[in-house]
Write a protein that binds this DNA or RNA. Structure first.
Length: 769
RNA sequence: GCCGAGGUGGCGAAAUGGUAGACGCACUAGCUUUAGGAGCUAGCGGGAGCAAUCCCGUGUGGGUUCAAGUCCCACCCUCGGCACCA
């Protein structure tokens, strides 16, 4: 027995042309701008996920609120559409990834419209379109020109079954994500981008942002800057030296052995057969998946000399030392390092406790030339090559004479050619390698015969700079117009998942800083994002993560057709704090549905009755207006809904009528959350045009005060009674009234009043002793 | 181990140092001859009591304060991220 038909209302207002205008971000508008960005999705075949629906609903409520507050809001959406699923689907079915992508993108867009997301569709972008990735390629060329991109022999994860190189994120538990075969290590030539050159900038730049603490921490920890020293150890009977990295040069006296990584080049040089076997075994495995807690290692035939005391110590190869950090070699100080102690025990190395000199040895080590100060980072350079088809072609050409040469800018974009087969080649190159007429080209420098790079870019490439493109999505002569970027940047609020707080955010900040140095983004804005907010996670009703295999997936589409868009949006706002992990609960959703019914009834019943209104109604609505505004500002949507419910419950008890103006104010408050019902009620209340272009109401202070307020009276800190006072009552009046209250007087009589604390209108405490 | 976020009814959760549990779900009782996730009224942290009322309650133990879920110290547990990082 619904009091309103959500289907009809939705149909009526879904494509309101006026709203399309309202949702547009206007370049150079005189209103103050706000750039609200929510991560654009990878359009996967399953359609819009409830997680998308949740984070986008929160972002949308916020964007709608800001518009009503009079801001010129940029709230764009697009598609991060390069990726493996479409490619895998193509391998299976032969359907071109672009075709699949176009189809799914349309589906997503439809579903987003049904959720009433107020995106500015005029600015829609798609990372797979040549007019977009032209600029992704352009950025790569600039990186190459500035010496920040080069080819390097790199060990990669190799799937022997699929004959393909896999990125770390494509290897799950040491197995290929696609076929489940054990992966191995293989060395191939890869494009590498020197993000480490920006390590310090990426840390320092955080000062110019308001990211929440955990996001800043994630960035800093990922970069993990460590100051220490590189110390040189001579190898006995050889000209070779081993450089170790340590943050504790003062423990040099306690060195009992050195350890080098199996990837260290000296392992090969000084290794006997046993060492070779160890290294071989190590390389078969995925480094990330060592389960054994026990440390293993083998001894080299040579020994190292401690520069401090000339002591000869053995050198081991062990996999607990990683080539990725420091120098790939450490000095083993079992008396001061737990891991070294474990290793010494495993290897049967005896050691004694040593006292560390009072004064650090930094100076001595440096002065005597044994070593030098060094900063080391956990952050590694960024492997930028993928041997996949469905990605941006890397715009480089290999010429025997000139080496790697970048494609001239005026030849961009290098369009991804259509292929017949999406299977990888036997050599592990991308399917592009099979297209001879595409690969064979002329060297841009010497005009001689040359070959195109067949690697494509990683998934991150297109999403690194997409927020710039939204400022000016159709520009054909630049990433985006400088003046437009100057107007819209920085992104005021960037909403996304925790999983992107490290890599995506870091890569994207790096690319922005690089573009900043090139002078192609505004010099006024050294950082791209002002604020970063993590959205929460929605679990299945069983409290587990949703997954197709568990069959516990909630589809937003199903929910909206069953209960209506407004109910689903309001429920998602109500279910908990925006950044919390919450389980879906349909009963609770029904509660929200019941509320919306009551709300609708209340407004329609009071509409047009303007006489005999009660002050209490006015007060409730003004109170709502005030606190709801504050909560919306802070993404506290759950309490906004709670307050709307509270107000509605309170108003239902009122016998008189409610003024139309107040009803309208209430409808404006609900508008960002429940846009369809709000619009319908707006019209019922005689409003003109769209409720979404109305100014968010402002509470009138004079209506906020009630005639009486209740004050908790404490005796020795415990609440012993409540008295009704007038807000303007003086301290003396309040104390007198409290003393006359029987319940309180009883406790006061137990002793002498030593002190009275009165906080106006808030608390009264008698200290009795 | 490190970093981050948390620990409040049966459940999801509220609470600028000032009446803990708003709001919702579930539940209980009653009303309404009640068309399909109904509506209305009342109750709903634990204990004692016919009741008024009293005592105890925000992970544990200390502390600051007239007053602590909230601030400080130590510890325990849960979740998320990163980890043999030298």
């Amino acid at each position: 027995m619904a009091s309103y038909d959500f289907r009809e209302i939705e149909k009526k207002w879904m494509d309101n042309p006026e709203d399309r205008d309202i949702n547009r971000g206007v370049d150079f508008d005189k209103r103050e701008k706000k750039y609200v960005l929510v991560e654009f999705p990878y359009p996967s075949g399953e359609g819009l996920h409830v997680g998308h629906a949740f984070s986008m609903t929160g972002s949308d409520v916020y964007a709608r609120y800001l518009r009503m507050k009079g801001f010129n809001v940029l709230f764009p959406m697009g598609w991060d559409a390069f990726g493996l699923p479409a490619e895998n689907y193509a391998i299976k079915t032969g359907i071109q990834p672009q075709v699949t992508t176009d189809r799914i993108t349309k589906l997503f867009k439809e579903q987003m419209k049904r959720m009433a997301f107020s995106f500015d569709w005029d600015r829609e972008i798609n990372t797979t379109l040549p007019e977009y990735y032209k600029w992704t390629q352009w950025i790569f060329i600039k990186l190459f020109e500035k010496g920040l991109a080069h080819k390097e022999e790199m060990p990669i994860n190799w799937c022997p079954k699929d004959k393909i190189g896999l990125a770390n994120e494509e290897v799950i538990d040491g197995k290929c994500e696609r076929c489940g075969a054990e992966t191995e290590k293989r060395t191939i030539s890869q494009w590498v981008v020197k993000i480490t050159d920006y390590a310090d900038r990426l840390i320092d730049g955080l000062k110019n942002t308001d990211f929440i603490e955990k996001v800043k921490a994630a960035q800093v920890n990922w970069i993990d800057r460590k100051e220490g020293m590189e110390i040189e150890f001579l190898i006995g009977g050889s000209e070779e030296k081993i450089r170790v990295f340590t943050t504790r040069p003062d423990t040099l006296t306690g060195v009992e052995f050195l350890v080098i990584s199996p990837d260290h080049k000296l392992a090969e040089k000084f290794g006997n057969d046993e060492v070779k076997r160890y290294v071989e075994k190590y390389k078969q495995r995925d480094i990330k998946n060592r389960e054994e807690k026990q440390k293993t290692g083998v001894k080299l035939t040579v020994r190292a000399i401690n520069p401090l005391n000339g002591k000869e110590v053995p050198i081991f190869v062990a996999d607990y030392v990683s080539m990725d950090f420091g120098t790939g070699a450490i000095m083993g100080v079992p008396s001061h390092d737990e891991r070294d102690k474990d290793f010494a025990k495993e290897m049967g190395i005896s050691f004694e406790a040593v006292t560390i000199p009072e004064i650090g040895m930094w100076g001595e080590v440096v002065n005597k030339g044994w070593g030098k100060k060094k900063v080391s980072y956990h952050l590694r350079d960024w492997i930028f090559s993928r041997q996949h088809y469905w990605g941006e072609p890397i715009p480089m050409v290999w010429c025997k004479k000139d080496g790697w040469v970048s494609v001239p800018e005026n030849e961009l974009p290098i369009v991804l050619p259509k292929v017949e087969k999406y299977q990888p080649t036997d050599t592990g190159e991308s399917p592009l390698a099979n297209i001879k007429e595409w690969v064979d080209t002329k060297c841009p420098k010497c005009g001689g015969e040359a070959k195109r790079e067949t690697d494509t870019m990683p998934n991150w490439a297109g999403s690194d700079w997409y927020f710039l493109r939204y400022c000016d999505p159709k520009n054909s002569s630049a990433l985006a117009d400088m003046e437009k970027m100057k107007y819209w940047l920085p992104v005021d609020m960037y909403i996304g998942g925790d999983e992107h707080n490290t890599l995506h955010l870091l890569y994207s900040r790096f690319i922005y800083q690089f573009l900043f140095d090139l002078g192609v983004v505004p010099k006024e804005h050294p950082e791209p994002y002002k604020k970063r907010l993590s959205h929460g996670v929605i679990l299945a009703p069983d409290g587990k993560r949703m997954s197709k295999s568990k069959g516990n997936v909630i589809a937003p589409e199903e929910m909206t057709s069953k209960y209506g868009t407004d109910v689903v949006r309001m429920y998602m706002s109500f279910m908990g704090p925006f950044d919390a992990t919450m389980a879906w609960n349909e009963r609770s959703l029904i509660g929200v549905s019941r509320f919306l019914e009551r709300f609708y009834k209340l407004v329609t019943e009071h509409a047009g009755k303007n006489s005999g209104q009660e002050m209490e109604g006015k007060r409730l609505i003004n109170k709502l207006v005030k606190s709801a505004g504050e909560d919306l500002e802070e993404f506290k949507f759950n309490t906004v809904v709670a307050k709307l419910m509270e107000t509605t419950n309170g108003l239902a008890k009122i016998t008189g009528s409610i003024e139309n103006e107040d009803l309208r104010a209430m409808v404006k408050v609900i508008a960002p959350l429940a846009p369809f019902v709000a619009q319908e009620l707006w019209v019922v209340l005689g409003g003109h045009g769209s409720v979404h272009s109305q100014a968010f109401p402002v509470a009138e202070e004079k209506f906020l005060v009630s005639e009486f307020l209740s004050l908790a009276v404490q005796v020795n800190g415990k609440v012993r009674g409540v008295i009704e006072i007038k807000p303007e009552a003086t301290e003396e009046e309040v104390i007198e009234k409290a003393k006359r209250e029987e319940k309180i007087a009883k406790f006061l009589a137990e002793g002498e009043i030593k002190k009275v604390i009165y906080i106006k209108g808030k608390a009264l405490n008698f200290v009795v002793g």
